[in-house]
Write a protein that binds this DNA or RNA. Structure first.
Lengths: 215, 215
DNA sequence: TTTTTAATAATAGTATTACTATCTTTTATT
DNA sequence: AATAAAAGATAGTAATACTATTATTAAAAA
């Protein structure tokens, strides 16, 4: 994790872990706009100043949470694809991992991965859709996302070494896996899965999109 | 335009048109987060209360601007494709219109379409990525966006009547046309066009993506 | 032309947000 | 037992996101 994202490492203390845990819960419950350090402090049972000792502001905290998420996705993808030889099958697995609901990993007791997944779907892009994106990028805050895109880009090139847009196709897969999910649940007429609300259909849509491009 | 989006129709008065014009300028310059009704009022030379007579809040104003944009895009697409018979050529035109910089239409002197395009790229998704999306949707605030998707979906079906995901492919084209542009200019290593910063490459990427799916 | 009305301008005020500062108490380390 | 670091308690400020009221001006109806 990038040290510049926090003032004090939240992984290093109980209070820090509570900040992460309750942030995820509160953002998931009320949305990022309604989320404040005051409410977070009340929820935890500490003070606003206590939170500010860990994170400079809400935006940094969001980026931290997003970075945590992308690191975790990358780890999961590597773990679950490293024994698959066929790059097409590997890419298929990647699509499935990105587009389907995740089960809470009990090892990381301070992070509910399922809530986290929901947060990133609805709030993740707000981490970079800002005027400070250039500054934030200089601090390498988006490295986990970029690493993931590079990983997926490599698989794409294994499928078809002549394909010209491996990174853009990666971001398309990632962003669309999330956006189609958001639309399906919130603006169903913006997808073809509004009636069934079945994540598997998003997977099939993305597979079709990706594999016809790579043929 | 949906009446429920405003308290007083901004198209009906000089002040109203100034609100739209200066909103677009200010959001484009400082981003949505830094944009406030107070600053907008100062910029126009009116008072905060004056703005509140037109729009309930900043979020409604954003949705209004986005709705204006999607209506305008739809109009443009219809105008520029209605004499093209071949649906593939029509879809090609749609992709080009969505993914390339727009020239300011002097007829709408109170809206700089080029700035507007930039705003929608960076801030457009914030109109729906909220907890109130369901409520906002009940008020039909996203109808222009949906109509555009339906229009593009119809062209897709003309290209291939058996294609199963015309709406999801439409949102993919629209959102990726914008997102690849944002990445190209702000997080270039998340695209394959970072070096050239050439919008035409985004068009080629999207054409490749879409037409290989429809074959 | 006067009257009514509608829109705008001017001003004030409130609760909440996004912080910063300081001081004390608790907990962990030497 | 002494020291340092983290956390808790409290206070304060500028800005934000509104609401309310009253006065002024301009346009429309009588």
């Amino acid at each position: 994790m990038n040290d510049a994202l926090f003032l004090r490492n939240p992984e290093d203390s109980e209070l820090g872990k509570k900040i992460i845990k309750h942030s995820i819960q509160l953002i998931s419950k009320n949305g990022l706009e309604a989320f404040t350090f005051k409410k977070l402090a009340e929820d935890i049972g500490t003070t606003e100043a206590g939170i500010y000792r860990y994170f400079e502001n809400k935006h940094r905290l969001l980026i931290y949470i997003a970075a945590w998420y992308w690191n975790w996705v990358e780890y999961r993808i590597n773990f679950q694809t490293n024994n698959i030889k066929d790059p097409f099958k590997r890419l298929q697995k990647v699509i499935k991992l990105l587009a389907t609901t995740v089960v809470d990993d009990k090892k990381t007791f301070h992070v509910d991965e399922n809530l986290l997944h929901q947060i990133i779907i609805a709030e993740g892009s707000k981490a970079y859709l800002t005027k400070q994106v250039g500054e934030d990028n200089k601090h390498h805050f988006f490295k986990p996302y970029k690493d993931l895109c590079a990983t997926i880009g490599d698989i794409i090139l294994e499928c078809n070494p002549k394909y010209k847009y491996p990174i853009s196709l990666s971001t398309t897969i990632i962003e669309m896996a999330h956006l189609q999910n958001f639309f399906m649940n919130n603006l169903p007429s913006l997808t073809d899965f509004g009636n069934s609300k079945d994540e598997k259909k998003i997977v099939v849509f993305l597979e079709n999109l990706v594999f016809s491009s790579l043929k």
